[in-house]
Design a protein around this nucleic acid. Structure first.
Lengths: 145, 145
DNA sequence: CCTTGACTTAGAGCACGCTCTAAGGTGTAC
DNA sequence: GTACACCTTAGAGCGTGCTCTAAGTCAAGG
């Protein structure tokens, strides 16, 4: 959905920005109100939001943070630091480093869980349609409800 | 925290089960009420829950499903199927297979986000304490608030 | 001019997954 | 027998992250 030759076109409406980022219009406004997004420029007459390329780039980054489970409150802190300028670079970097570790842990946990799930699926294969009782479930058949 | 030589001891109280699984007492009862856990046996006189090894094993599996983002409603469906016995094995296996794909996707997404975060951290290193404006943020310094 | 439609705001509402409360039962220790 | 710890239940409450509503503004088209 690039404009012409892919050069700076800027100025998307909130709808267009929603379409492009995959967030809802509501969520975009919510993020801005929450102070996560710095400043979105407005159209002179109407006061409507006009998303520029750098806004969209930053929103993509915010999406990364959310995807990886960073709470809104921490993203607010990060955005606050950005607003304070360069003197906060170290702290921002430290936040990202801490978050990086959490993400690595998350990935490791998911991988362990994936293994467990795969193992369970293989169990269903092994004990397939002949026998039933799997290695960790001997329930069923007793009408509990 | 195994009992003696690590053999079958069964019969943990809800507190002990909570300690062992890392879930709260409240959550254990909530899961049972929600029909996620099949049956937990009760003490004759008091009616108190007595968690057996297989209960704990199954709870660990439930934790895997939750960790990987399976909604409670879907876990309820899975537990329902278990209660219906062996004829539902295929459907249960299908559920796990579908979930496995979602988990794989999640991991891929997390890894992509991790890369983005790492890249951003490296940016802070590169533009370090000398210059400030990073590749995707030229905010700051304009007192918005 | 006036309708249409996309936008604006502040604030209410909602789904999810717990988490806690209130009122009461059981059983062991003194 | 009574204090105490620990359990039971049904149901209310809560934090998070959206999601939606109501009331109003603006600009372009007929």
């Amino acid at each position: 959905m690039k404009n012409k030759t892919g050069e700076a076109e800027t100025a998307l409406t909130v709808q267009a920005a929603a379409a492009q980022t995959g967030l809802s219009v509501h969520t975009l406004r919510y993020y801005e109100r929450a102070g996560l997004i710095p400043s979105i420029r407005r159209d002179d007459g109407s006061g409507h939001r006009r998303y520029q390329d750098r806004d969209l780039t930053f929103i993509e980054f915010l999406k990364r943070l959310r995807t990886t489970g960073m709470p809104i409150s921490e993203m607010q802190r990060y955005a606050d630091l950005m607003r304070q300028g360069n003197i906060t670079m170290e702290e921002r970097k430290a936040m990202l480093e801490a978050h990086r570790e959490r993400v690595r842990l998350q990935i490791a946990e998911l991988q362990a869980s994936l293994s467990a799930i795969e193992w369970k699926i293989e169990n269903y294969d092994r004990l397939g349609l002949e026998q039933a009782v799997s290695t960790s479930e001997k329930e069923g058949t007793n009408g509990i409800k």
